[in-house]
């Protein structure tokens, strides 16, 4: 199977359309017959990541790649960056705006949710430059979390 790739540009603070890239990815994975439990994990990671990029970032870029043995979600933005990644990973820690909280997000659960639902998550971020979150999902049967 050749790698399947798709990418989306994310518009900053466009909460009306935020989530559409993730729903499109969810549909794409359904169409190619990925198992529902894995689709759900990928979709949740995609959505939390998309919401983060739309909220905090500028020029958000959302990419998905489906290979024979893994799915890679790569979400990046040119934004303020994350000052302290370790702190950002703590459940409940949030720098969200009131607008984002009104959307039902911003309670400091996004990154922990993404880490829980992916097999591997890497965050690169530089203050004032932006953030890139890459999540990987194993497609080989029987592979377990944290074995990478």
């Amino acid at each position: 199977m050749a790698a399947l790739k798709k990418s989306f540009q994310l518009k900053s603070r466009d909460f009306m359309h935020a989530g559409e890239a993730s729903i499109s990815v969810q549909n794409m994975l359904k169409q190619i017959g990925i198992e529902p439990a894995l689709i759900r994990r990928v979709a949740i990671c995609a959505y939390e990541g998309e919401m983060n990029a739309v909220t905090h970032g500028e020029n958000g870029n959302f990419r998905i790649e489906v290979n024979t043995d893994k799915i890679i979600l790569d979400i990046s933005d040119e934004g303020p960056g994350i000052e302290d990644i370790e702190k950002a990973m703590e459940k409940g820690f949030s720098t969200a705006t009131e607008e984002y909280r009104e959307m039902g997000f911003g309670a400091g659960m996004g990154l922990p949710n993404m880490e829980t639902n992916s097999d591997r998550m890497d965050i690169e971020s530089e203050k004032g430059q932006g953030t890139r979150v890459v999540m990987r999902f194993s497609l080989s049967p029987g592979s377990r979390k944290n074995e990478t």
Binding site: G19, E20, R40, G104, F105
Partner: peptide, 17 residues
């Protein structure tokens, strides 16, 4: 069951199933 009536409640439902 929610009091949140913006579009993200719908998208959350779609994503979460």
């Amino acid at each position: 069951l929610t009091g949140l009536t913006n579009v993200q409640s719908i998208k959350t439902a779609v994503i979460a199933g």
